[in-house]
Amino acid sequence: MKSEVRNQKSEVGTQKLILGGVEFTSRLILGTGKFSDTQTMIQAIEASGTELVTVALRRFNRDKPDDDLCAPLAKLKNVKLMPNTSGAMNAKEAVRAAQLGRELSGSPFVKVEIHPNPHHLMPDAIETYLAAKELAADGFIVLPYIPADPVLAKKLEDVGCAAVMPLGAAIGSGGGLSTAEMIKLIIRDSNIPVIVDAGLRAPSEAARAMEMGCDACLVNSAIAAANDPSGMARAFALGVKTGFAARQAGLMPKSEVAVASSPLTSFLS
C-alpha cells in the first residue's frame, strides 16, 4: 500500500511501518538463506506473517529453478522482495549487484550489505555509505546493514536511506543485542526507521529490541537453524508484536533505588 509519508519512524500511536512510501503491517523482516529447503523457507515466511523478505543476489539462479530462491519468493502474495548485495567487497560491486537485483526482481528495495571479510561478515561502514548514497540517488529504497554506529546512521539518513539496519551481533552468531547501548543512541536521534538486523537468537531479544524503540527486526539464522523454522517464525512474530505493543503502551520508568515508604527526606518539611 502506498503512503504519502516516505519513511515512518514509529512514535506512540503509529501502527504501520513505512519504508520508501510503502506501508507494512508486519514489523518482522525475514532473510531467506540457510533453510534446509525452499518449502521450509516458504512455510516459515508464511508463518511469520512478514511482508518483506531479503534474498541474496548470489542465490538468484534463473538457469536452475530448483536452486533459485528468487522465483518462489516472487510468487508470494503480500510479500515484497528486497535483494541484498551479500558477496560484494566494495561499493562498486554492491551498486552493480543492486542494479542487477532490481532488474531481475523488479523490486525497488535493496539491502546494502558489504562485508569484505568473508569469515566474520562485519559490515564495511565506509563502502556501505558510498554505495547507499549512490543507490539512494538512483531511486532505490535503500536499507543499509551497518555497524551499530550512531554517527554513521545519521550520515546514511542524510543521503536518503529509507531506514538503517544496525547489527545486534555478528551475522549467524546468535549473540543477541550485544550492541544495545549504541542502538539506543541511534534510535534516539533517528528520523528514519531503525531495524535491528543480525544477531538475534530468541524472540525475547526481538521483543527487547522493539521495547527499546526499534521499528522492526530482521531475522534469518535464528529461524532457519531452529528445529521447527515455522514455529520459530511464529514465535518471532509474536516477540516483535509484544515488544511493539509494550513500547506503544509505555514502559514504566526504571528506578535504581527503591522509594522508601517512610521518605528519607521527611525531616525537610
Binding site: 533453510f35 534446509s36 529447503d37 525452499t38 543476489l57 548470489r58 542465490r59 538468484f60 539462479n61 536452475k64 536452486d67 558477496g87 560484494a88 567487497m89 560491486e93 552493480r96 549487484a97 542487477l100
Partner: peptide, 17 residues
Amino acid sequence: LRERKLEPVFKNWDAAY
C-alpha cells in the same frame, strides 16, 4: 541431501562480483 534435510546449493556467487 534433501532426505537429510540439507539444501544443495548450486549457485552461491554471482558473476557481478
